[in-house]
Each structure stands twice: as C-alpha cells, then as structure tokens.
Design a protein around this nucleic acid. Structure first.
Length: 649
RNA sequence: GCUGAUGUAGCUCAGGGGUAGAGCACUUCCUUGGUAAGGAAGAGGUCAUGGGUUCAAUUCCCAUUAUCAGCUCCA
C-alpha cells in the first residue's frame, strides 16, 4: 500500500502501482471524466503513468494550467495526425502549446500548400480522428531505436531533435496511426477533444533561425466543450473591436498615407489633441520631479553618431545619410536623442553640486524598421519618445532610479494599466567581454536596479544576458487587446555614452569624474503608448484625456449664437468643446458615432439662452439637470480633478 | 527581410472577360422645435500601380507596391 496525499492534505491509500486515472476514479467517476493530467511531486505526468511509491499529487482539470497544457499538447498531436492523413509524406517540426492554444510546424511535400481555406478541412479531419477515441500511448525508447524509427519515416527535423537528446530520456507517443517524438504529458485519450478551431496559417523558420527552411505553421485552439470554443471566439471578436487601428480610424485619431510612406503616422486633430494631453500631463509630473525641457533638432552630423557608436552598429541598416550641397558634409536623421542631450550636458562645465541633471524632450526619432515589422502605431519608422536623460553620480543612481519608477507608477495608475510586467535585464556574467564598463560599475548598477525595484515593491522577472551592451535596464511591458506584449516604459543605465562623449563633472575633491547616465521613457513612445491606451480603454478615455469632452447642441439655428458663446466660455476654462451645427447651413454637423464618444452633451434653447444656462446630459447616464455655465465648468473640472487626484494617492 | 492572404466610393464590404454595386458617411432640399432625430434627391471610382494575354481586362497571368497574420528583428 502507498499513501497518496491530495491537495487538501487528505491521504488516501492505494495498492501500488496506481495510475492518476485510477485515483480520480476512486474519488469520483465524474472527476475521472474531467481530469486531464496529474501532478506528482511537482512533476506533471500522464494520467496513465503508474505511481509506485508515496506521493503528493494534484489532479489537473481544464481550469488548471497543467490541464490545459496537456489538452492543447495532445491537440497539437491530433493536428499533426490529421495533416499526415490529408498530406502524406509531410515532415514534422515541433508542435508545442502556447498561451492560448497550440501550433504545429510542418514541412509539406513539394508542391503542396495549406491555405486558410484548407483549415476547415483539417479541422473536420481532426474531429473525425478525435471521435475514434484512440488511446494516447507513451513508449520509452532508446536513442538508437528512436533514430531508426524516424529514419524510416525520413523525417530530418525529428532526427535533428533526437540527435540532441540524451539516451534514456527519449519517449514517443502513439495515437491511432500517428507517432510523435514527445516528452509529454498527454491526455489518456483523444476523446476529450470536442471542439477545435484552426485559427491561422503562417510561415515560421525551423528553430527560429532565418537561415533555415521556412516551415508552415498552423495555429489552433481546442476545448473540451463546444460552448467554451464559442465563448473564446466571441472574446476574440471583442478583442478585434478594440484594435487601435480600427478605433483610430473610427475616431479620426491618426492615419497613414502611402504618399507619405510606410510606418509614418499622420496625427489628425483629435489624435493630436489626445497626444497633447498626455504630453502636458507628463510634463507636469516631470516638472515636479526636477526635469528641465530641452529641444534638439531632428538631424545630426554623421560624426555625432560615429562618436556615440550608433552609426557603426546600425548605420547600414537604417535611413541613409543626408547629403548637402557641401561636398563631404553628411547628416543623419536622429535614431535617438541621447547624443544630442550629451552635447547639451557637455556645453558647460558641471559641479557635483549640479547633479543630478535631468534633460527631458519629446524627441521624434526615425528608425528603419524592416517592412514586415510595421504594425499600426505600435511599430513605426518615425516616432516620438518621451525621452529624458539623467546625469548623476554613482551614489545618486539608485535614488534617481527609484524616482523614475515613481513616475512610471503615476502614469500607469493614471491610465489604469494594472496588468504590466516589469523585466530586469542584466548582463550575462559568463560573457562579460560583450559589455562595456568595469565590473565594479556593472555590479553597482545592477544592484541599484534590483534594490530600487525591490524597495518600490515592484514584482519583477529577471532576464540574464538581456542587458543592453552599455548597461542594465528595467522595462515595463503591457499587453494589447489580442495579448501581444509591447514594451512601453524603459529605464536604462548607461556607462557607454558618458565615456564616449567624455562627459565630466568636478567632484568635491576638485577632480574630474564621469557621471552615470540614465535613459528613460515612461511612455516608451507616444505612438505605441496611445495604441495600447486605445486598446485598453476601447476608445473610452478618461475625461481628462478625451479629445472632445463636450458637444454643445442648439435645438434650432436660432440658438446657434448662444451655443457658440457657451463653447467659447467653456474653452476659456480649458474644457474642450465642439459645437454641433446641424441646424445651420454653414458649419459642421457632428456625426452620430462621433457624438457617442463625447461624454457630455449640452442642449441649449430658449430657456437656456435667456438665463445663461445649459441642460446637461452625460453619455449613458441621461439628464443631469440644468445648470449655469460656471456651475457646469466647476462640475466638469471637479470630475477631472477627482480622476487626477486619485492618481497621486 | 521571409511565408501566406488581401487591396473595388470617405468607411464597411458585395460583384464579376463586354456602361461599376449596397449600407453608412457626404452635398442639397424638405420635415422635425427640447432632439444623441426622419424623408427625398444628388454627388462621389483610371476597381492599388505597371506590364502581358484578349476584338475587349476592374475581372485571367506576371511584376511592383501597400496593408493584414505569423516568423525573424527591435539602438
């Protein structure tokens, strides 16, 4: 007899060996039907694996990540089985699970392609195979045996994978006529897979290397119940409606023009208004934190970027140099603001008493992203960073770092970004020659970042070897509507540029010292930030950001003058208004869908015009009553203030 | 950059080898006088661009270009 400890601490005794499925059955037959995998002493295993000694277990169902994992992994095998049946002689790469679903990389026989239209056929085949209720059987094989089997199948990808595995650790999984090299775990039987949707098909390089052959990758998702699939598809549809490209078009925020060039966004009046509000907000915060605004040009002498080292690293792969009538004179569109700010720092001598110095600029930069990388506003070729560079002493580094984290917190709070990931990127200690700067400085900087993050209560993930070559960094990632992760805020410590630009300050000891530089951009870039903001809010911005807060609507053209007067008076109080001229021959009529995005509607007619009043309606909430202009101005300012005050708490 | 898909009115899309279609938006007129509206008429297109096949191409073929999905990349 062996003791099996359950998650609630209860212990059950079984005759060894016992399988997960048998344990589940002993608890309840219904559980046995729902359970998908088993965690035994922390290791996730097939339900059919025999346990032969005391163990702590957890039975994983659909709601458990481990359960979904096994489910989707088996679904990937089912996909491969279906493809093999429909396209004989296909060679198989890998077929893992992903956050939502699974994919399989396949190398189709010459001349065959899978297009979106074929997905439905493959889906049907998968369901047909699932209904055969085949057991999924695990087999342990020697390396020699594995190599032999896949040599027979003539599958170069699996052979490559096997050749890298250690003998004794190799397992195969069989279901029906299909066999795959796989570590598992899997479902006991394909019958659990009841609903399948193949989502897309795309190319993917074998092992992610662009020098390798491009395989066909089929993405899919599967569920134990049809209803769950329906719900997921609805969720996907909802996410698509929040796409910033769609909303940006609907709300007239920004556009792209082929005549201007790809990846070069054009901000329309309302988008510019939104962006301006964000900029004003950050400028105000930064002012409180002791930043000074600077302004630098969009181009710089090529030699500036040779000094900074950027030209050498990226010159060939970026926008090319700008020539002038003067022979030999060459300029570059600026790909970053740092060198310019270094030159500002350098323009005057500095005392340790002046530090830290914080130069901020909404600096527009140009980077030649590869054409396939461009994506709405999230990845563009010309964008504005909310950039700032802090020049400080080593001793001030940690404190400055913490202050930058504070700014990022303020912004994320202001816009209700709760689901962000903070990632600390450190250098690879085994490969220190890749990085510049002394070991001592690196250790100091890394410690400063780690401690500053910890002291700020930030939950971080740490990536070793992901640091920039000039210093460690802390990045803030936020997900868009469909779950793609984008880097927004970034804080980077830099030892490289102060060195290259020979930046100095005079210390208390009357000696020259080198300052440390912090690059930081809380939004990351205005473009990407606005994109993510749109997807988070689905275009319903907080009142303080809304491009148009109030629409004034006269009930007839007789009251147009009064409507315009109302608008002007409110504008003086910084309330962004627009007049609906629907009853006048000249002027702009506010479109219905436009109207629905404006929070307040002021109706003005005879009663209002006589005693300088407005009738207020709040979008979605109906009549708010009649009030004087001053009352309304206070009313709306209070709402804005409330929103902003809650940010600082 | 790679693989695949797509490009028809301002927007969302249908169509198809022989005068180019719808809904919404737009313009004008009418109605409506406390209203997040109603009716009628009108205007709007080198069917992404350039070649080819054809008596005839927006439609078929090729190339280019842009967009979309994914891969790769992201100072």
């Amino acid at each position: 007899m062996i003791n099996i400890t359950l998650p609630d601490g209860g212990i059950k005794q079984f005759e060894a060996p016992v399988s997960g499925l048998e344990i589940a059955n002993a608890i309840s037959p219904r559980l046995a039907k729902e359970v998908l995998s088993i965690t035994v002493n922390g290791e996730v295993l097939d339900l059919t694996r025999k346990i032969d000694s005391d163990a702590t277990i957890k039975l994983n169902k659909w709601d458990d990540q481990e359960g979904k994992h096994a489910f989707w992994h088996s679904s990937a095998h089912l996909l491969a089985e279906a493809i093999e049946a429909l396209y004989p002689d296909t060679k198989f790469g890998i077929g893992p699970t992903i956050e939502n679903g699974f994919y399989y990389d396949v190398d189709l026989p010459a001349g065959k392609v899978i297009t979106e239209n074929d997905l439905e056929i493959i889906e049907k085949k998968m369901l047909e195979l699932a209904r055969q209720k085949n057991d999924i059987v695990r087999e342990v094989v020697s390396k020699a045996e594995a190599l032999k089997r896949f040599t027979e199948k003539n599958d170069p990808y699996k052979l490559e994978l096997i050749s890298e595995l250690e003998d004794g650790t190799i397992t195969l999984y069989h279901q029906g006529n299909f066999t795959d090299l796989c570590r598992g775990p899997h479902l006991p039987n394909t019958e659990h897979i009841k609903a399948i949707k193949l989502l897309s098909v795309a190319g993917a390089y074998w092992r992610g290397n662009e020098k390798n052959k491009m395989l066909t990758r089929v993405y899919g998702i599967s569920f134990p119940k049809a209803k769950l699939l329906e719900e997921y598809l609805v969720l996907l549809e909802e996410a698509k409606k929040r796409d910033h490209r769609k909303i940006g078009k609907e709300m007239d925020l920004f556009t792209f023009s082929q005549a201007v060039g790809m990846g070069l966004p054009l901000w329309m009046p309302k988008g510019a208004q939104l962006r301006e509000q964000l900029e004003l907000f950050l400028k105000k915060v930064q002012k409180n934190f002791g930043y000074e605004q600077v302004i630098t040009p969009h181009i710089g002498d090529v030699n500036l970027y040779k000094t900074s080292g950027h030209y050498e690293k990226y010159g060939k792969d970026s926008f090319q140099v700008i020539h002038t009538p003067q022979e030999g004179e060459e300029y570059l569109l600026k790909p970053m603001n740092c060198p310019h700010h270094c030159e500002i720092y350098k323009a005057r001598p500095h005392s340790y008493k002046d530090l830290p110095i914080r130069y901020a600029e909404f600096g527009t930069v140009y980077r030649y992203e590869m054409s396939g990388e461009l994506h709405g506003l999230t990845r563009v070729r010309g964008f504005t960073q909310d950039d700032a560079h802090i020049f400080c002493t080593h001793d001030q580094l940690k404190d400055e770092f913490k202050k930058v984290i504070d700014i990022i917190f303020i912004i994320f709070k202001a816009l209700d970004f709760k689901n962000f990931t903070a990632q600390i990127s450190l250098r690879d200690p085994k490969n220190t020659e890749k990085y510049i700067g002394s070991d001592e400085n690196w250790e100091k900087a890394e410690r400063a970042i780690i401690e500053a993050s910890a002291e700020k209560g930030l939950i971080t993930v740490t990536e070793t070897g992901e640091a920039a070559f000039y210093g460690p960094k802390l990045d803030f990632m936020v997900k868009d509507a469909v779950g793609r992760s984008w880097q927004l805020g970034t804080i980077q410590v830099d030892y490289n540029l102060p060195e290259r630009f020979e930046l100095e300050y005079t210390g208390a000891d009357n000696q020259k010292h080198r300052p440390v530089m912090i690059h930081r951009a809380p939004f990351g870039s205005m473009e990407r930030f606005v994109a993510v903001l749109i997807e988070h809010t689905a275009g319903k911005f907080p009142l303080w950001l809304t491009p148009e807060q109030v629409v004034v609507m006269p009930i007839s053209e007789k009251f147009n003058d009064y409507a315009r007067k109302v608008s002007n008076i409110l504008n003086i109080s910084d309330i962004r208004t627009v007049v609906d001229d629907r009853n006048e021959k000249i002027g702009r009529k506010i479109r219905d869908n436009e109207l629905k995005r404006i929070p307040y509607l002021l109706i003005v007619g005879e009663k209002e015009a006589e005693s300088e009043l407005v009738s207020v309606r709040r979008q979605g909430e109906g009549d708010q009553g009649t009030m004087s202009l001053n009352e309304f101005a206070d009313f709306i300012s209070n709402e804005v203030k409330q929103q902003l005050n809650s940010i600082y708490k």
